[in-house]
């Protein structure tokens, strides 16, 4: 049996959703035989590989690099899952939206904040005007709510996906926060 190819990406978020993924504990071990984690912050690979079955996207879209990553992810993944509130709603990262990006950079890197006082142009990707949820940038197939999504829900969703079913999330599964 070929293993289901799963990837995860980490955009603008706290990595709490990835932590919650690890929190599904021994279920992860049960499932591990059935999928291959081909790209993830937890896996060392430079390029995002093609032919992915499911990609979990943690975090909101905050800079131009994220937009590029998502386009790449969408092109190479059969299913894209918005993984956690930041990916679903923008959540905490989106709280910077009322503030112009330049003012943010000035506040973080500008004069008096760092020794040089110059704004980054190369290492830090340009910020997008507004932080957005993933589905405002690429089509999304499934939304996993929660900050972070509860480990039990993650386990249930993964199990269903590995069984080739589309998980049905209803009621309390859809609780934000």
């Amino acid at each position: 049996m070929t293993k289901v190819r799963i990837a995860t990406v980490w955009l603008s978020g706290c990595s709490g959703c990835h932590m919650s993924l690890l929190d599904i504990d021994e279920t992860l071990l049960d499932l591990a035989d059935r999928f291959e984690l081909v790209k993830s912050p937890l896996v060392d690979a430079k390029e995002f590989p093609a032919g992915i079955d499911v990609t979990l996207v943690e975090g909101a879209v905050a800079n131009e690099e994220h937009v590029e990553i998502l386009k790449d992810v969408r092109a190479k993944s059969r299913l894209v899952v918005a993984f956690g509130d930041c990916a679903v709603t923008g959540n905490v990262p989106a709280m910077r939206n009322p503030i112009p990006p330049h003012d943010l950079l000035e506040r973080v890197y500008g004069k008096g904040m760092t020794t040089t006082g110059t704004l980054p142009t190369e290492v830090v990707p340009p910020l997008v005007d507004r932080v957005r949820p993933v589905h405002e940038v690429i089509p999304v197939d499934l939304w996993l709510h929660g900050c972070p999504p509860p480990a039990g829900v993650i386990a249930r969703v993964l199990t269903a996906l590995l069984n080739g079913e589309m998980p049905q999330l209803t009621g309390k599964d859809l609780k934000f926060g």
Binding site: E136, H145, T170
Partner: peptide, 16 residues
Amino acid sequence: ACELGMDSVRVPYRYP
């Protein structure tokens, strides 16, 4: 949101 099965918000967020 739970009751009405709102899995995502399909209208543009305003972020006022």
